[in-house]
Simulated assay, not measured.
Amino acid sequence: MSEANAIFEAMLGRFDADEADGMEAVFQFDLDDADSYHLSIEDGKCEMGTGEHDDPTVTLSMDVKTLKEVMSGELDGMAAFMQGKIRADGDIMLATKLTQIFPL
């Protein structure tokens, strides 16, 4: 299993359905040094897919190291965005909820 895949598997395990209540969203992750992944949230469930989604709500571009640091709490997502380590397109406010939907 790739490092990126392991990070997304861990995120699925931490999915907080209460935080995602009523949410319908697709988070597209375009990783600079790995395959692309997307997480689809609908009806209180989260599913992982590989590759490009047809209609993502928000697209986040970064390298695997940045993803790992943000999802482990080592790096604040907003700080990473301000430093240019994360590029975002689409519903950027939704991206700020990632650590609430997938808490540590």
Results as ranks from 00 to 15, higher is better:
residue 61 S to P: 07
residue 13 G to N: 10
residue 99 T to C: 06
residue 43 D to A: 15
residue 59 T to Y: 04
residue 27 F to P: 01
residue 60 L to M: 15
residue 80 A to Y: 06
residue 41 I to G: 09
residue 1 M to E: 02
residue 87 R to N: 11
residue 93 M to L: 11
residue 96 T to E: 11
residue 71 M to N: 06
residue 11 M to Q: 13
residue 60 L to S: 14
residue 46 C to H: 07
residue 101 I to V: 14
residue 34 A to W: 12
residue 26 V to R: 08
residue 27 F to T: 00
residue 23 M to H: 10
residue 16 D to G: 12
residue 61 S to M: 06
residue 69 E to R: 11
residue 25 A to P: 04
residue 60 L to C: 13
residue 67 L to D: 07
residue 67 L to W: 03
residue 91 D to P: 08
residue 53 H to M: 07
residue 18 D to Y: 10
residue 17 A to V: 08
residue 1 M to V: 09
residue 45 K to S: 11
residue 91 D to R: 07
residue 33 D to C: 02
residue 45 K to N: 10
residue 15 F to G: 03
residue 2 S to F: 00
residue 50 T to H: 00
residue 8 F to I: 03
residue 11 M to A: 11
residue 13 G to F: 13
residue 75 L to M: 13
residue 62 M to S: 14
residue 32 D to S: 11
residue 10 A to W: 14
residue 93 M to Y: 01
residue 103 P to T: 11
residue 57 T to P: 06
residue 25 A to T: 08
residue 24 E to C: 13
residue 23 M to D: 09
residue 30 D to R: 02
residue 10 A to L: 14
residue 101 I to E: 04
residue 16 D to Q: 11
residue 5 N to H: 09
residue 20 A to W: 04
residue 44 G to L: 10
residue 35 D to R: 08
residue 102 F to N: 03
residue 81 F to Q: 03
residue 52 E to M: 10
residue 14 R to L: 11
residue 8 F to V: 02
residue 27 F to A: 05
residue 94 L to V: 02
residue 36 S to A: 13
residue 26 V to N: 10
residue 42 E to C: 13
residue 85 K to H: 05
residue 53 H to P: 06
residue 10 A to Q: 15
residue 69 E to T: 05
residue 30 D to K: 01
residue 87 R to T: 15
residue 49 G to V: 03
residue 45 K to H: 10
residue 19 E to L: 10
residue 1 M to W: 10
residue 95 A to T: 02
residue 76 D to N: 14
residue 47 E to D: 07
residue 22 G to Q: 14
residue 98 L to F: 04
residue 34 A to Q: 10
residue 86 I to C: 09
residue 19 E to S: 15
residue 103 P to H: 09
residue 14 R to A: 06
residue 50 T to V: 00
residue 89 D to R: 09
residue 46 C to E: 05
residue 65 K to R: 13
residue 16 D to T: 12
residue 83 Q to A: 14
